[in-house]
Nucleic acid binder design. Structure first.
Lengths: 239, 239
DNA sequence: TAGATTGTTAATCGATTAACAATC
DNA sequence: TAGATTGTTAATCGATTAACAATC
């Protein structure tokens, strides 16, 4: 068996393919957060990190970190900890950063523009390919180096450019139709910002519904709960 | 004990205050989704719904629905089901829709504009009060009926207008500073879109960090996993 | 080697589901 | 009343934490 030098971040002949079989949803949901924190450590030139230090930074238990990372194979080294670069690379691999997925963004409104002008895609290894809109005024324009095409061209474009991901920032009512068009054109993942749950059961497509508003509601829930607790507490008797 | 007519959605003298004590995080996280689906049913003029029908629509177990809704008190009625309007009202109440929170949005870039131009706040009972930006070019302009002020005025504005919620769509590096300013000015909740986890431990403020990108990564994770499964499966021997 | 820290098992805790009695 | 459907308890399942042996 070839040894992998996790400490220096260099590899022997064959790195073990990260294993994904039967990884629990709870762990998967946490991966992007690990990725963020490790990216931060990397930018700060940290070479190694122990589960206990990472646990202090991330405010989770060290036990959970070790358990999580171990789902995919032994990423650390006893007595040393984890090599930041190596670990970051492994998690990036799991999250498809090196898959080179190509994405189109449908809807060149404020949200579409916000997404393409950010480092959103770039940072995650997703290649922005083009913008689409139904508004003739926008067609032909360029935002953040991305050309806007008319949605009529969407199906052909996706096919010809082997688009993997479709990002939906269109109005609610248009979402289902556009999604189906993309699914037919071979798109394999849809990132949906319309405020409804898209379902493409007939197609072999993975859908991520992004409900930004849910987060605002959770914030409000917590604010109300806090007030309830503090204000007007009788403190007389009983529980 | 006064009876509450859950069936007609009308109330007796005293409606039971929804109880929030020790509700599990898992349930809280699901509330916005119930809210969305019930809103949809309400728009479609549905008067009642049973846990079993709702379970089909939402693709969760009926058992979970009954268990969840029961955390806060008996919202249903045996033999009948749930009154859609009543239930929607109760969940709205839990989520602070009727709290009348006032929000400012700091950062009048594409994301800020996208948020204020949507029904994001309105739909959740949050009142948009003003926009703020550091760019003199933008100050004085109006977007979606909202005036843009200079961030220098943020602290005073929040105090004078009793702002409850601050929405951060500023660049990463500016986020912590702006957040602190708002906390000092009495803001009690911060909705942070900067790609970093804001912590305001010294202040009595609730922070919701919105990591849009995590959702894209999860999508990519699932796409890679699916490919791994389908492609190049040796099917020779061993597991 | 001794010290540190992972990998991993076992114990605990929390969340989900199933089942059914209560009740409308 | 009979039928339907909730509220609620008990059983199962999954996720987290604690503990420690393995090992670098």
């Amino acid at each position: 068996m070839e040894r992998i030098d996790k400490v220096n971040g260099t590899f022997g002949r064959r790195a073990p393919a990260v294993s994904r079989d039967s990884v629990s949803p709870a762990v998967i949901k946490r991966l992007p957060r690990y990725h963020r924190y490790l990216g931060e450590l990397l930018r700060n030139d940290r070479l190694r990190i122990s589960s206990s230090e990472l646990s202090r930074i991330m405010r989770v238990t060290a036990s959970q970190i070790r358990q999580d990372l171990n789902c995919f194979g032994g990423f650390g080294q006893q007595g040393y900890g984890y090599n930041v670069k190596y670990l970051y690379g492994k998690i990036s691999e799991l999250l498809g950063v090196s898959a080179g997925y190509r994405a189109v963004i449908v809807g060149a409104g404020n949200l579409g523009k916000a997404l393409v002008s950010s480092h959103m895609f770039e940072r995650r290894g997703v290649i922005r390919s083009a913008l689409f809109d139904i508004d003739e005024e926008l067609v032909g324009k360029t935002f953040s180096d991305l050309k806007v095409y008319h949605v009529d061209e969407l199906e052909n474009y996706c096919r010809e450019n082997r688009i993997d991901i479709g990002v939906l920032t269109v109005p609610r009512d248009a979402a289902a139709g556009v999604a189906e068009t993309m699914a037919k054109a071979g798109v394999r993942g849809i990132w949906n910002f319309a405020n409804m749950e898209l379902r493409l059961d007939e197609y072999d497509v993975i859908v991520q519904n992004m409900h930004i508003g849910d987060s605002l509601m959770t914030l409000c829930y917590e604010m109300v709960s806090k007030e309830d607790k503090h204000e007007a507490r009788p403190e007389v008797e009983g529980k």
